[in-house]
């Protein structure tokens, strides 16, 4: 390949038509209440881990839905499973169970 002295960058735009949503579909089967989430962010607002780290449950949800699962496992390790998010969720999503299932799925369990 020729070197012209510059490189072509990959676009940062996400093509949702090409996203691999396999993990998200499997997660929905294990925790169907996840489908009720409307991304209000109450979980992130109340999260103890969020207070001290960049852990963000809402972001994790978004990444999971978009099929961007490469960095999710490392992110999920920051959760202490205290369950405050489950208590505040206005849609009754069982977040604690959801996070446990996400960890399992990401580790092929």
């Amino acid at each position: 390949m020729k070197d012209f002295g510059f490189a072509i960058e990959k676009p940062r735009a996400l093509d949702l038509d090409k996203a691999d949503r396999n993990l998200y579909v499997r997660l929905l089967k294990r925790e169907p209440s996840f489908a009720r989430c409307f991304q209000c962010g109450m979980c992130s607002a109340t999260c103890s881990a969020r207070n001290f780290t960049d852990y963000n449950i809402r972001r994790i949800h978004t990444l999971m839905r978009q099929g961007q699962t490469q960095e999710l496992d490392a992110m999920l390790q920051k959760c202490m499973l205290c369950g405050k998010c489950t208590l505040v969720c206005p849609r009754g999503v069982n977040l604690r169970h959801l996070i446990i299932q996400m960890r399992k799925l990401l580790n092929n369990e």
Partner: peptide
């Protein structure tokens, strides 16, 4: 500037 042409070609490629 030659080094910046990556921005230009990435746009066109998109």
């Amino acid at each position: 500037i030659q080094e910046n042409r990556g921005y230009s070609i990435s746009n066109t490629k998109k």
